[in-house]
């Protein structure tokens, strides 16, 4: 099951009660810390091994995008990543206080168009069923990602 990306539009924000959260400086050297925690949390959510790897990469890509696009390479800002194991799967929320995400960025490049860049967004969308920005956040971005559990015969 893959849902298109969507924006929160007049919908209440999810309650992140029970979430594990980490705040990192917006420096690429801390991405490895986020990756390690992402893998462990995805495992706690009973995600299968290959999917854990995809989820780890997706969260890494989302945080990299915050550094590149929201903070324009400024390494002195903060990124908050919240993880929550939910009954139906695994939820990740990534928050920054940088520039609002340009909607055109969300499309990524055509995968047949071989050039550097534009791949990260595809790697995020393939790992998560829900990809949405909170339009109500006044300053910065709040990206919500949800990966649902699959049946035994689905990946």
């Amino acid at each position: 099951m893959t849902l298109p990306w969507w924006n929160w539009h007049g919908t209440a924000l999810p309650d992140m009660k029970g979430a594990v959260s980490i705040t990192i400086p917006s420096h690429p050297k801390y991405l490895s810390v986020v990756r390690a925690l992402t893998s462990r949390m995805a495992e706690l959510a009973d995600m299968p091994g290959p999917e854990v790897d995809k989820i780890r990469l997706a969260v890494d890509e989302a945080c990299s995008n915050v550094i590149k696009y929201a903070y324009k390479g400024d390494t002195g800002r903060k990124i908050v990543v919240k993880f929550r194991v939910i009954r139906t799967g695994f939820e990740v929320v990534i928050e920054d206080t940088g520039e609002k995400t340009d909607p055109s960025f969300i499309a990524g490049r055509d995968l047949d168009d071989v050039r550097p860049g534009g791949l990260g967004i595809h790697l995020i969308k393939r790992a998560f069923d829900v990809f949405g920005f909170d339009e109500k956040k006044k300053k910065g971005n709040r990206l919500r990602l949800i990966r649902y559990k699959r049946g035994n015969n689905e990946n």
């Binding site: 990756r35 990469l57 890494d60 890509e61 990299s64 071989v114 050039r115 550097p116 860049g117 791949l119 990260g120 790697l123």
Partner: peptide, 16 residues
């Protein structure tokens, strides 16, 4: 052990 899209992009640039 790990590569992200920035690593992949580096090799695309190298190939070009």
């Amino acid at each position: 052990s790990y590569i992200d899209s920035s690593g992949i992009a580096t090799f695309v640039e190298g190939l070009k």
